[in-house]
Design a protein around this nucleic acid. Structure first.
Lengths: 185, 185
DNA sequence: TCCTTCTATGCAACTCGTTGCATAGACAAG
DNA sequence: CTTGTCTATGCAACGAGTTGCATAGAAGGA
């Protein structure tokens, strides 16, 4: 399971509350892992019970109080151990591809709108990734000196960018193929 | 849930037993969806109970008897309906990327072997995909005439190939980045 | 004033997916 | 002759992930 480890990495990069973690999972960590707040709160509770992290109550004026979590020495050693274990190469789950092969038993033309919708979603994600890259790494406002953590964040972001670019090109191929099949289907 | 729909598509392409489906999920369907035999048998049972598919007992001499499933008219209409519903653009889950960002809190050099192992796994997959493409679509032995189903299978396979190529290039980038960081880490 | 959004945390129920185990005959290699 | 692999199906238990709901104060817009 990687959610716990993704949380450990994120809290090492910057301590924070469950709510803040949930927002990071919509942004930078979302490049490679997703999680809802319910999942995060549940796992945080378990991780605190196992003393991988500890909580500090932070009172706030205009906003509800929050619990800020930090990684303990034990949590850090748990992460280190996991980093040294091999993991299985990830397996793909692409629901849209199921639909594309299913289109052989339906109307290929009808699927084009759906594929275009997905294309738009990926184009939006790519734009967000590129904006983030300019802001944090390549733009004129970006910090000049990069430590190891930033270099690694950047290479992961480059992976997200490459993924979205590849997906856009493939979806164009899919749309062209569906168009070609349309008339005689 | 797409497993049911992936099974419907696969059984429409070719009726078969749970065991045969499990093997297809290691091959062509595995380009975009994975499932173990336990999952498949369980879902087949449910689908049969809902009359989306029906089973035919096939006695075999040298091998155990099997149940060959086919899609019913109801199953086909369930698939058609699903094809016309929008689905959410897929979300990424890349455990290796968690490790890469985690390497900032450990030894980047130690991660190189693991990344190279993944690179090899993706290179192997790409080779299998390309062999399948030559066999079924682009090679001299491939059937000349392609119907809609084959065109759609091919475009999905092209997606798998593009994904593996993109991943290989990215993993090279990752390895180079880890090497650069090694010395001063 | 009311409606919505944002911050912040959480429970309960459910479905999906994984892991370990079990059965059982056929066949091939050592 | 024993060990391992392949075909073929399945149960049980667990862990991961989703969906719906609930609370509650602050801020901002219609």
């Amino acid at each position: 399971m990687a959610l716990e480890h993704a949380i450990l990495v994120s809290l090492l990069e910057q301590p924070g509350s469950g709510y803040e973690l949930a927002r990071r999972f919509e942004r930078s960590i979302g490049y490679f892992w997703t999680a809802t707040h319910q999942q995060i709160y549940r796992v945080l509770k378990r991780m605190e019970g196992e003393s991988w992290i500890d909580a500090r109550e932070v009172a706030q004026q205009t906003r509800p109080d929050k619990k800020e979590y930090s990684v303990t020495a034990l949590g850090r050693s748990v992460l280190t151990q996991w980093l040294h274990e091999p993991i299985a190469p990830e397996s793909v789950r692409h629901e849209l591809a199921v639909k594309i092969r299913g289109a052989a038993f339906d109307d290929p033309i009808a699927l084009i709108r759906e594929v275009e919708r997905h294309r738009q979603a990926h184009a939006d994600r790519l734009a967000r990734y590129l904006a983030g890259e300019r802001r944090d790494f390549t733009g004129p406002e970006a910090p000049a000196a990069h430590d190891a953590g930033q270099e690694l964040q950047h290479v992961v972001l480059r992976g997200g960018i490459a993924y979205e670019r590849m997906t856009l090109a493939w979806l164009d191929d899919v749309i062209a193929t569906l168009h070609r099949l349309g008339p005689q289907a």
